[in-house]
């Protein structure tokens, strides 16, 4: 199942999280994303770079906080979520590391909508199998080596690692 959540401090937004495996059209998604096609207004995240739900939601929190304080650095809330996953200030680097790649097969897709509008969105742009998005599912597609390298961390304990990632996300560029 996907996750639908409202962060208490930001009731005006509803956050949807999905996970897909065996995605076959990542290259096409990326091209349309770059063109700015409105149907692709989602955060498309390379699932290999994500260890936990806590990591994802912590980045969403950071993006919403910066958005409501007029401090976002990228064009949309959806690109900001990807930038928020990054421990560094380099936007291009963040999108390259954490965003969808031409050959991505495991994707996390996030959609943030206005809680008041009954805004519909269409996920059929992703050709793949939707799967659950629990910590266990996230761990199964995570590549620890990449994650540790991205955040320059080395803990063997996954709970500690996840908390260290949260700190890096919360403190980026401040």
């Amino acid at each position: 199942m996907s996750i639908k959540t409202v962060l208490p401090q930001f009731p005006q937004f509803t956050v949807h999280l999905f996970k897909f495996k065996n995605v076959t059209n990542s290259k096409e998604i990326k091209q349309n994303l770059i063109k700015g096609d409105k149907r692709y207004d989602f955060s498309f995240i390379n699932a290999q770079t994500v260890l936990s739900e806590e990591q994802l939601l912590s980045a969403v929190y950071r993006a919403l906080l910066d958005h409501t304080q007029d401090k976002i650095r990228t064009k949309t809330i959806h690109s900001e979520v990807i930038f928020s996953l990054s421990p560094t200030q380099n936007i291009m680097d963040a999108l390259r590391r954490f965003g969808i790649q031409d050959d991505s097969t495991d994707l996390i897709v996030i959609k943030i909508v206005d809680s008041n509008s009954q805004e519909e969105f269409d996920l059929s742009v992703v050709e793949g199998e939707e799967v659950d998005i629990t910590d266990e599912d996230l761990k199964s597609s995570a590549i620890l080596k990449t994650i540790k390298k991205n955040y320059k961390l080395k803990s063997e304990d996954l709970t500690v690692l996840s908390h260290q990632i949260v700190a890096a996300i919360q403190l980026r560029g401040l």
């Binding site: 929190y61 906080l65 401090k71 949260v166 919360q170 403190l171 401040l174």
Partner: peptide, 9 residues
């Protein structure tokens, strides 16, 4: 303690 969130501003 671990850090959960930061609203430094």
């Amino acid at each position: 303690p671990s850090i959960i969130a930061v609203d430094a501003r």
